[in-house]
Write a protein that binds this DNA or RNA. Structure first.
Lengths: 211, 211
DNA sequence: AAGTGTGAACAAGTTCACAGCC
DNA sequence: GGCTGTGAACTTGTTCACACTT
């Protein structure tokens, strides 16, 4: 555990956790790295190595106690508590995001929504009244807000991101196709479906060219 | 070009292309790998190496002609033509996806939408009438459909994916939190915002624990 | 016997550094 | 002089293989 942990390992832990959670629901109590690997299509060694960065959670000759490993992963990832998020930009996407039940189910509470349009401010989504973006800086001071979800249109992405960061938010989920600049200590994840499509077409093209 | 090209390189090309497109709009005609690197926060060597897998596009002592490199990238990625996609599952997310203007702008035409609910079938999104999922297999035979976008609820993800693959679709964008199985030759990309949040909380937790 | 945990071997990916060219 | 293209060096990440534990 004194070791530097690769970021790719951190990114895989939520995947392991998701699978373990499903396995728990199925009522299984013990599982080996081999079986986990088959489900996820990764090598058992990968899973064991990844987990070894954090401790020794398995039972030799047996495997992992599903419940125990799940607890360990949730502890490591900080999923043994709830986190708060705000959604900024309540267009079609923002509305879909703000009302997605998966966030609450997984421990992420959307506590406020913001927009600039008077047509949208005051309307309700998922039990939350949409506020003016002008309220954001003050809300960031007075409420505890962990994560900013940015679903504004591209041109405001950087501005909104800066507002969040100035208000002390250190985790940003950017649904905008813009690449935003953040200080090194801020966690940023980008969701840009077009980039996925554009890497898939590389392979599609090859297929088409063959025939 | 006879070399095997790493998948990570393919994944970066759309990012380069996006930046070049922006730079074109700004009216710049020539740019160096160094300048591109600053914009994207990657090393110039990375960019030059990535491009070198596909050819020699730069001018020594000068840099890259923006227009030329953009054309090359679009050719490599197959973005010099339009592609067709269908959206399956017209809930809040499916509606947001189907009406997202970014797809059309970037050359991806949503040509049909499908759902199972009689309340949704027959309604219009973005000029397209939502059809019954029962129409999908036949449509896949008669129309040319390149990409399947899956926005159904989790439990139907695999079933819908199988329908698409049986109909000959070889590129799937899965917005579902379920991990679906596909044959090796099918391109699959998953969009699961919760996994992003869960890796960010690892870092948030560390921050909280320090103070 | 079965399956973990892990150093060592290997593979993949990134950066360096410089020859070559404009 | 400046910047590309690219082998070579290096770094990072993955897999192997086996000692060890139950």
């Amino acid at each position: 555990m004194p070791l530097e942990i690769p970021e790719v390992v951190i990114d895989r832990l939520p995947i392991y956790r998701g699978l373990l959670s499903r396995i728990m629901d199925q009522g299984r109590t013990v599982i080996s790295s081999h079986e986990l690997g088959i489900e996820l299509d990764v090598t058992p060694a990968q899973i064991r190595k990844d987990l070894s960065y954090f401790g020794r959670f398995g039972k030799q000759g047996k495997g992992y106690i599903v419940q125990d490993l799940l607890d360990e992963l949730e502890n490591i990832l900080g999923l043994d508590r709830r986190w708060t998020a705000v959604v900024i930009g309540i267009g079609r996407l923002g509305r879909a995001v703000a009302s997605y039940p998966g966030f609450e189910e997984e421990g992420f509470d959307i506590v406020a929504c913001y927009d600039t349009s008077p047509d949208v401010i005051g309307t309700e989504i998922n039990g939350i009244i949409v506020q003016s973006i002008d309220d954001l800086p003050n809300d960031l001071k007075t409420k505890s807000i962990n994560i900013g979800i940015v679903t504004v249109s591209s041109e405001y992405a950087q501005k909104v991101t800066d507002l969040l960061i100035n208000g002390g938010v250190t985790a940003i989920l950017n649904y905008t196709p813009s690449r935003v600049q953040v200080p090194r200590e801020v966690e940023l994840r980008n969701i840009n479906p077009v980039l996925f499509l554009q890497s898939m077409t590389y392979h599609l093209k090859k297929l088409f060219d063959e025939n």
